[in-house]
Design a protein around this nucleic acid. Sequence first.
DNA 1: CAGTATCCTGTCCGATACTG
DNA 2: CAGTATCGGACAGGATACTG
Lengths: 160, 160
Amino acid sequence: MSAHVRAEDRECPLSTAMSYVGEWWTILILHDCFDGYTRFDQFEANIGLSSSMLTTRLKTLVDNGILAKRAYQERPVRHEYVLTDLGRSLRPILVAMAAWRNEQLAPSERAMVLVDTETGREVEPETIDPVTGLPVSDPRFAFRAGPAAGEEMRARYDVP
Amino acid sequence: MSAHVRAEDRECPLSTAMSYVGEWWTILILHDCFDGYTRFDQFEANIGLSSSMLTTRLKTLVDNGILAKRAYQERPVRHEYVLTDLGRSLRPILVAMAAWRNEQLAPSERAMVLVDTETGREVEPETIDPVTGLPVSDPRFAFRAGPAAGEEMRARYDVP
DNA sequence: CAGTATCCTGTCCGATACTG
DNA sequence: CAGTATCGGACAGGATACTG
């Protein structure tokens, strides 16, 4: 099974998420988008992938509803790629990934940080349960089969 | 460039994170680990990948310090794979990914959910700035070059 | 500039067979 | 049960050339 598998087949939200953002280039393109870049040549220069691969990845992202392709000029026609609402909702995933790596580094060793642009302060993000305020890494939290769980998923969580 | 590239080359924490957890099977194995599974045949059955691939992926995870391989019995020797501290610290990433997908579904459509095991309540995790309490998707947060930023990274964030 | 088309190599990965 | 070894097809992805 490769990345082309639509993970809905496995009815696992993790697999589905991976099918959207599980590829290297996809994450790097999204990173560019979150930083305000919108154009083909900007992606190409920032990321350093071949133009043919970039074409393919952008098409997938547009097909998946993560990016929207819009002409911003006619004659010659030029397009820009902007995040959709669905695309923007991926931000916590990218932030959590960058935060994971930065955690292992001393502040002075970090090449990229998240900042509060109103104060300039560096942010150290946390993924939490908003009800208790506890980090999700607390052992009291665990995955369980949900209402729409199929056979496999229920088997997995029956006394694991 | 493929997944084998050590992302430290690019000195971007996102790339580094991707080099650790950017592959499908890796995420699925980690999911199993977080759910308490530890053995080769359990991974094989739950995930449905070939044994040769599983061998390769487990080796990479052990080499990367995400899993530890321990003999839990001699004669015949049997191993188990358990999360290291570094491995456990990946949990927010998996949780953020599953949460992203579940957000798009009605509660009754969810196949797998995060729960507070002390109350049974479903958790809807959020990635936030602990200082202000705001979600990181708030537009006031942005990535910036950090102290250890190299040439490329600084160029990227000079008036982007 | 913003791509598309083609070629070629390396790698992913399932299938199968084998081992203690 | 817990893997290792080998084979072969499919595809990722770089390099290059071409187009409006």
